[in-house]
């Protein structure tokens, strides 16, 4: 087994850079090397959503802009026939799910190498994202259990509000690998005034 490298390999961590008032109101931490599975299929076809819940323990979210999670995985709605399954552990569900879905027209695709998660938080995270994100991040309209695909700094992203066990209210940004470095640099630049802390990545191999 050879070494894995996250898309943020060029950005050194940890870093603390206080803002104009000496504060750090934004933090960011990569959650690297999760299992990302893209699932496409017809939720109305018999056995489809059952297969997903049997393997993940999560009811397939069929409402737009929603996601559901358990301790080990999350399932986010991406489209009327498309979901993203994120597993924390390396052995997360590709083979068992493929087995169960085999009789159905579907596409289960491993994207683990193709995307990563930037978790952001801190008092001003919404302001930092609002520097280049047209989506309304206000907690009234976008809270836990919601997800949204949108753009930040011309980069397509999937946003999922989460509770970080150590730092509380936070947001997971799922971003394609090739854009991750750009997005991280953008957010650090946008957070310069508020001050930011870049934590060492989770899940380093």
């Amino acid at each position: 087994m050879s070494a894995k490298h996250s898309p943020l390999v060029e950005i050194e961590t940890p870093v603390i850079r206080p803002g104009s008032d000496g504060q750090t109101l934004f933090w960011m931490q990569e959650h690297a090397f999760c299992v990302h599975l893209n699932l496409r299929g017809d939720p109305s076809s018999s056995g489809f959503s059952e297969a997903v819940s049997a393997v993940t323990g999560i009811a397939l979210p069929e409402h737009p802009n929603t996601c559901a999670s358990s301790e080990h995985c999350r399932v986010a709605w991406l489209g009327p026939d498309e979901w993203l399954l994120i597993g924390v552990h390396e052995d997360f569900g590709h083979a068992p799910l493929e087995d169960r879905l085999a009789p159905l027209h579907h596409a289960l695709t491993d994207l683990s190498g193709g995307q990563t998660i930037l978790r952001v938080g801190g008092e001003n995270w919404r302001d930092v994202l609002a520097s280049a994100c047209p989506f309304d991040l206000h907690p009234r309209v976008f809270g836990e259990g919601a997800c949204a695909q949108t753009v930040i700094a011309h980069t397509n992203v999937l946003l999922m509000p989460v509770k970080d066990p150590d730092r509380g209210e936070a947001l997971d940004i799922v971003v394609r690998r090739s854009f991750a470095d750009h997005l991280a640099r953008w957010l650090m630049d946008a957070a310069a005034e508020d001050g930011f802390e870049l934590l060492a990545p989770m899940g380093s191999a």
């Binding site: 898309p7 520097s131 280049a132 700094a153 011309h154 090739s178 750009h182």
Partner: peptide, 20 residues
């Protein structure tokens, strides 16, 4: 222009896994 300046931030810079 805002922050969208320079080589790094004007437009997304996409990098391969071997870029470094």
């Amino acid at each position: 222009a805002g922050r969208a300046l320079g080589e790094q931030l004007f437009d997304p810079v996409r990098k391969t896994a071997i870029h470094a």
